[in-house]
Structures are given as C-alpha cells and as structure tokens.
C-alpha cells in the first residue's frame, strides 16, 4: 500500500468502529469486572465488598436452581435439536429428493418469526383449554385439554425445550445441509468403490466432512442455550414460573440487577455464567479433539 493518504486511510476507516467499540464494548467489560466487586443499589450507590458477591453466589440456593434449570434446558435442547437437525439435513441431502429448497425454507421459517414473537405465539399455543397444543393432543390422542403446561413445575422445562426445538431445528439444519453439500462427492464414489456401505460412508466420509460445522453448531447451541432468557421471561413472566421452575441464570441476573437494583451482584452472576460457558466450550472442544489438531 502506497502513499501517505493510503497509509492513514485504514486508521480513519477503523476509527468510528474502534471508538464506539472502546466505549460500548471494551469499557463495559472492564467496568463489569469492577462492578462485580461491589454491592450496588442502582447506578449511584456502591459499596466495595471484594469477592463477597462471588462467595455469596456460591451459597445462593436460587442461583443453583437457576443453574440447574438452565443446564436442563441446554442439555435437552442440544440433545434433541442437533440429532434431529442433522437427520433432516441428511434426508434433504439425498440426491433423489425434489423440492429441497422449499423444504429448507419451510424448516427455516420458524426462525423468521424470531424468538420474541414465537414466544408470544406459544403463550397461546400452550394455553390450557383453547391452546392449539392441547387441542391437538386431545384430538389425536384423547389427552385432556386442560394440561397447564406453564403452571405445572414438571412441565415448564419440557415446554420451553419444545418451543426451542420448533424454533431452532430448521436453523441448525441449514448449517448442516450446507456442510453436507460441501462434502466432495468423489469421496463417496471412492468409498463406494472401496466397498463401504451406507453406514460406513456416514461414519468415514460424512461425519469427518462436516465435523468443523458440527462442532461449531454444538458449541454455539450450548452457549446460546445457557443464555436462555426471553423465552422463559415471556412465557412465565417476572416470577419465573411455578416453584421457580423457569428460573434461568440470565433471568436471575435480570431480577437481581434490574428489579432488585444490585448491579454488582448482576455483574458477578454474569461473569460466573461466562466462566461456565467458557469451561463448557473448552470441554466440548477437548472431547471432540479440536484443540489437538490446532497444535
């Protein structure tokens, strides 16, 4: 790159981004660390307590309820969604399937509704008596139409997992399908010639071929699931459901920080969440052996 103008240009181009990043990206991160050492009451009153927020958190039963709920949701979502997504992608990727784009669009369409508006819709779908789900279960299987999905503690998480399943399965499938289509077709031909059956092909050609995407989707889905908030908040309200059955980590953060006014405790919850997510991602990468390859 030549010349003075061209030398200053990249700095000028980057300046707006970097400036706003410093203010709204970097500063809040640092400030968040500091806040987590304070007890606050709103943005004005602060009192330094060192690591007390974290120590308190470890003994806070509500926090552990939130962790348990969130983990249940994440586990349920990932274990149901991803195999289903991959299965659909494999079906759609078959050479003899027509209308692939139409199916792909249909599977993707719940995602266009978005999380918030889907939650509003499912608030009614899950409603007892006139909700679609109960009506359907009643019509198809003769189940009672009075099931109170969102006020029965044991049904809250399954309901949330179901909505997430509806929302994200198609979305993940799009990733998988793209990955499958990028696998070199000649590899299958070679494998066939080498005498590999369908299952062997899947194991030795397909899976290695889509592995990076697979790991990417698993890690991102887990991270996303751990930040569950909107769905629970919209369906269950501030109160986080019966017996706190829908209390999630971010919901607990919200309640403490913005209903209770303790921004410091909220920051500590945030960092604890960050740490858990990071550890989980590392464990997942370790299990899948991604770290080793990078080295």
């Amino acid at each position: 790159m030549p010349l003075r103008t061209a030398r200053t240009a990249p700095y000028l181009f980057l300046a707006p981004f970097v400036l706003s990043f410093l203010i709204f990206g970097a500063y809040p991160i640092i400030r968040s660390v500091m806040l987590s050492f304070y007890i606050t009451s709103g943005p004005e009153a602060q009192h330094f307590v060192g690591l007390d927020n974290y120590l308190h958190l470890l003994q806070d039963p509500d926090f552990w309820t939130a962790v348990r709920n969130t983990a249940t949701f994440a586990l349920g979502s990932v274990l149901l969604q991803l195999p289903l997504s991959l299965g659909l992608a494999l079906l759609l990727n078959r050479a003899d399937i027509r209308g692939r784009n139409v199916f792909r669009f249909i599977f993707f369409s719940p995602n266009l509704m978005g999380l918030v508006f889907s939650a509003l819709l499912f608030m009614l779908i899950l409603a007892p008596r006139f909700g679609l789900l109960n009506a359907a279960l009643h019509a198809l299987f003769g189940l009672p139409s009075t099931t109170r999905w969102l006020s029965t503690p044991s049904l809250v998480m399954p309901a949330l997992i179901m909505v997430a399943l509806w929302l994200y399965t198609g979305f993940n499938m799009v990733y998988f399908l793209a990955a499958l289509q990028a696998v070199d077709g000649e590899l299958y031909e070679a494998a066939t010639i080498d005498g590999a059956g369908r299952w062997a092909q899947f194991w030795h050609v397909t899976l290695p071929g889509i592995r990076p995407v697979l790991i990417f989707v698993v890690v991102l889905s887990t991270i996303g699931s751990f930040q569950l908030f909107e769905l629970a908040f919209l369906l269950l309200g501030n109160s986080s459901g019966p017996d706190q059955a829908g209390l999630t980590i971010v919901m607990y953060l919200y309640q403490n920080g913005f209903l209770g006014g303790d921004l410091g405790y909220a920051a500590a919850i945030g960092w604890t969440l960050a740490l858990m997510v990071l550890l989980l991602a590392l464990v997942q990468l370790r299990i899948t052996g991604t770290g080793k390859e990078a080295r």
Partner: peptide, 28 residues
C-alpha cells in the same frame, strides 16, 4: 492491525449478559 483483531475476537467470546449491568450504568 493484529492487535485490533485479537482484542475484538477475544471480546466476542464474552456472553452478552455480562455487559448488561455496566452498560446500564453507562447509559444511565
């Protein structure tokens, strides 16, 4: 250039909810 990209990548790892409290304070 490398430094800018490194810092940005690193911050992408941090989940959004971490920023809620300080951001609220800032906006306040």
């Amino acid at each position: 250039k490398k430094a800018v990209m490194g810092v940005m990548l690193a911050t992408m790892m941090i989940p959004g909810p971490v920023l809620l409290a300080p951001m609220y304070e800032l906006i306040y």
